[in-house]
Write a protein that binds this DNA or RNA. Structure first.
Lengths: 142, 142, 142, 142
DNA sequence: TTTT
DNA sequence: TTTT
């Protein structure tokens, strides 16, 4: 009965930190910047950058490890999660984005790496030339 | 390298149609109405309703069968898909929303049914879903 | 070149707090709960509730003041924003959701109030909003 | 009481068509491809491309005219709208995405164009080079 | 065809 | 602190 969804497109601030927990579970953490630019009422150009703490687990963490680095432009879909922790006896809260899906955006031509993961996309061929030859299921309208 | 996502909150127009394909795969289809209300530049109140063709498969279709009926208010997350079909020798196109997740909203007090499903459906989401049962790494903040 | 978007459907924990700043600007704040239910690998039913700090400004704050109360089910679309503040000489961070649009969901039959607002709020959306009153170009298909 | 939202990240199939209606209102139309790649149960790699008919109005259409061309990678947020039209005496339906916001993604270094529009974003500087000179918070985790 |  |  509820929805908790975050959608971000931004750039990674530093190379991700990867940790491998017991049982081989991988966790990746990185900061993602989103910048909002607008003109204020007084006519000034304002630029406001938010830094988001992103966490990815397991297979997605491994994709992060292989393909994400400082400067990468990413599409992230995830969930908000706020944790509390103690620091010098004071309770603090930290909100992070638990990533569910990720897309690497705007890879440059020079880049040869390929995402060999069941993430979403690949065949560049189809980007501008869809395969219309695919037979549609049947002939029934909705 | 791409995202195809639809998010709808609306009301179901008629009781869903359910079909059971070979091998026990269930498919549910229904129309969902979203209504946009606004005031035009000339000051008139305008109401515009869109009808969306929603399709759900497998486990999600079964949830639809059990809990969705005419008038239900739903949150739907899915993907756009356009099919072509032949009708009287003329090619037509139909765009539908392939549902990935669903939430029943605003159930009224008289209703006693309960959705006993995690309702994350169609595998896509759960693929990258972290294992919440895992112990959090340690006691470090972030 | 970036996207910072949050979509929530949840319930309001307490009646919102409304403040009227100088110049008549209204600000509303409230907590919204989202609950995730799932079954762990060990077969246990787990329920995890997140509390989100939502902030609404101006016209949207006034809608909140009129129609939102403890228990209300809401759809919220907004942006993440993390602020830092000092508490007893210690720096803390707080992440909040700056609401851009809101929908009251699942109002029950007994409720007679009606939201008499277009509720698109905070200008952002309406900036790029097409003029629906315009005649559609012609009768040509795409 | 409803939400009708589409979020797409994809590539433009051909240079957009721009029309200027009476009163100087601009309309831009283009097709956007999203491709879904997955491995079927039988182990085959499957690639499915969807083509989305996107329409932008007014200021957003002018941004399209200036900066979008065949191959552009875009983030689009909009609403679904289905229109009917007559063709040879037969009623057809066409579903399009009415764009509300747009982001140009992954522009390469060689590209010098700059988005000079009050859309959302501005500082091109941050497109491929977010402002890493920002002091990372401090000694906080993450 | 829904809903408010 | 909500809700189912």
């Amino acid at each position: 009965m509820s929805v908790n969804k975050v959608i971000l497109v931004g750039n990674v601030g530093r190379d991700p930190e990867i940790r491998h927990l017991d049982k081989g579970v991988a966790v990746a953490r990185f900061s993602l910047a989103t910048t909002e630019n607008y003109t204020s009422k007084t006519g000034e150009k304002v630029s406001n950058t938010e830094w988001h703490n992103v966490v990815a687990w397991r297979g997605l963490a491994e994709v992060v490890e292989k393909y994400v680095k400082k400067g990468s432009q990413l599409y992230i879909e995830g969930r908000l999660r706020t944790r509390d922790y103690d620091k010098d006896g004071v309770k603090h809260y930290a909100t992070e984005i638990n990533a569910d899906t990720m897309q690497l955006l705007g890879r440059r031509e020079g880049q040869t790496e390929t995402v060999g993961q069941p993430m979403q996309t690949e065949s560049v061929q189809s980007v501008n030339e869809p395969d219309f030859s695919q037979p549609e299921e049947d002939d029934l309208p909705f």
